[in-house]
Simulated assay, not measured.
Amino acid sequence: MLTKAYDATAAVLAEVTDWSAPSPCAGWTVRDVANHLVDAMCTFAAAVDGGQGEYRGEDLPGAYREAADRCLAVFEDPAVLAASHPFPPGPTPGSVIARISLSESLVHGWDVARGAGVAYRPAPEVVDAVREFTAGPPPEEGMFAPPVVPSSDDPMTVLLAHLGRKA
Rank of each mutant, 00 (worst) to 15 (best):
75 F>E: 02
75 F>S: 01
76 E>Y: 03
76 E>V: 10
77 D>W: 13
77 D>N: 15
77 D>Q: 15
77 D>M: 14
77 D>R: 11
77 D>P: 11
77 D>E: 15
78 P>S: 12
79 A>I: 08
79 A>H: 14
81 L>P: 04
81 L>H: 15
81 L>S: 13
82 A>H: 10
82 A>Y: 15
82 A>Q: 15
82 A>V: 10
83 A>P: 04
83 A>W: 05
83 A>N: 05
83 A>R: 05
84 S>H: 11
84 S>L: 14
84 S>V: 14
84 S>Y: 04
85 H>C: 09
85 H>S: 15
85 H>T: 13
85 H>N: 09
86 P>S: 11
86 P>N: 14
86 P>L: 08
88 P>K: 14
88 P>W: 11
89 P>D: 10
90 G>K: 12
91 P>F: 03
91 P>S: 07
92 T>M: 09
92 T>Y: 05
93 P>A: 13
93 P>Q: 11
93 P>N: 14
93 P>D: 07
93 P>C: 15
94 G>S: 06
94 G>A: 10
95 S>N: 07
95 S>A: 13
96 V>P: 00
96 V>W: 12
96 V>K: 11
97 I>S: 00
97 I>P: 00
97 I>C: 02
97 I>K: 01
99 R>C: 04
99 R>P: 01
100 I>L: 11
101 S>V: 08
101 S>I: 04
101 S>R: 06
101 S>K: 04
101 S>D: 06
102 L>D: 03
102 L>N: 02
102 L>F: 10
102 L>Q: 02
102 L>K: 00
104 E>A: 05
104 E>L: 08
104 E>S: 14
104 E>W: 08
105 S>D: 09
105 S>C: 07
105 S>L: 03
106 L>R: 00
106 L>H: 00
106 L>Y: 01
107 V>L: 07
107 V>W: 01
109 G>I: 00
109 G>N: 02
109 G>S: 15
109 G>F: 01
109 G>V: 02
109 G>A: 08
110 W>D: 01
111 D>M: 04
111 D>F: 04
112 V>E: 02
112 V>A: 11
112 V>R: 01
112 V>W: 03
112 V>N: 06
113 A>D: 00
113 A>Q: 05
113 A>H: 00
113 A>P: 01
114 R>S: 05
114 R>L: 06
115 G>V: 09
115 G>W: 02
115 G>P: 04
115 G>S: 06
115 G>A: 08
115 G>K: 01
116 A>F: 06
116 A>N: 05
116 A>V: 02
116 A>L: 05
117 G>T: 05
117 G>R: 07
118 V>P: 03
118 V>S: 12
119 A>M: 13
119 A>G: 15
119 A>Y: 03
119 A>V: 09
119 A>N: 09
120 Y>C: 12
120 Y>G: 08
121 R>P: 01
121 R>N: 12
121 R>V: 03
121 R>L: 10
123 A>K: 04
123 A>V: 07
123 A>P: 08
124 P>F: 08
124 P>L: 11
126 V>Q: 09
126 V>M: 08
127 V>K: 00
127 V>C: 03
127 V>H: 01
128 D>V: 04
128 D>K: 13
128 D>C: 04
